[in-house]
């Protein structure tokens, strides 16, 4: 049956290589497959950009928190419980009317996992890594963000062990929104700097 074929397709060569490694390391007592199950489950369900959105919404509503976040990103993010692997040392950079920040890792694909989760494919792709530093306005335009030349673009190439989170500007017309409602406007891309936070509906 044609329909079933895709589901029952033989594993790819790559899948076979992975299975071989996992099996060999398990047989040698160097790997517990249940630990990998737990890691996959953690990063599929617990760690993602909703964490970063909570940080941003808190900064938008609590000036003291925002001050702490910009002063010591790691500690302020830890207050909300989003520390850990690939977010050990965090720097938060603030977008304003004068400055727009965007983040790249030209050498690999370093990314703040605890606040944004695992990186999307485009962040890891050659065109993004190559062009962000030489043509950030072109990259932003490709993402639909057009900024006037009056706005300084700061590209953060996060090639050492500091990880970067962009604090986007709070959209206009959101004075009445709760922290949770604000967090819903904060997209992953707005915290990488390739988008702005969304305008409220209606």
């Amino acid at each position: 049956m044609a329909h079933d074929h895709a589901h029952n397709a033989p594993p790819s060569e790559t899948a076979m290589r992975v299975k071989a490694l996992e099996t060999l390391l398990t047989e040698k007592g160097l790997l517990d497959p249940a630990a990998i199950d737990a890691l996959v489950e953690t990063y599929e369900t617990k760690i993602g950009p909703r964490n970063g959105a909570k940080v941003v919404a808190r900064a938008w509503t609590d000036p003291d928190y925002k001050a702490r976040l910009l002063e010591d990103g790691s500690a302020a993010i830890a207050e909300l419980g989003f520390s850990g692997v690939q977010g050990e040392d965090m720097i938060v950079v603030e977008n304003t009317d004068e400055v727009h920040n965007m983040v790249v890792c030209t050498l690999c694909s370093c990314y703040p996992w605890p606040t944004l989760g695992l990186p999307p494919i485009w962040f890891k792709s050659a065109p993004y890594r190559a062009r962000s530093v030489i043509d950030p306005r072109g990259v932003l335009a490709e993402f639909g963000v057009e900024l006037s030349d009056d706005v300084e673009i700061r590209v953060w190439d996060s090639n050492a062990e500091l990880r970067y989170l962009v604090l986007p500007q709070r959209p206009a017309g959101t004075d009445e929104l709760s922290e949770d409602e604000l967090a819903a406007l904060v997209t992953r891309d707005s915290m990488i700097g390739t988008a702005l936070a969304e305008a409220p509906a209606g």
Binding site: V133, I134, R137, G138, E152, V155, D157, N159
Partner: peptide, 8 residues
Amino acid sequence: NANACVYI
């Protein structure tokens, strides 16, 4: 680009 810089 106009008015752009890199922090590394």
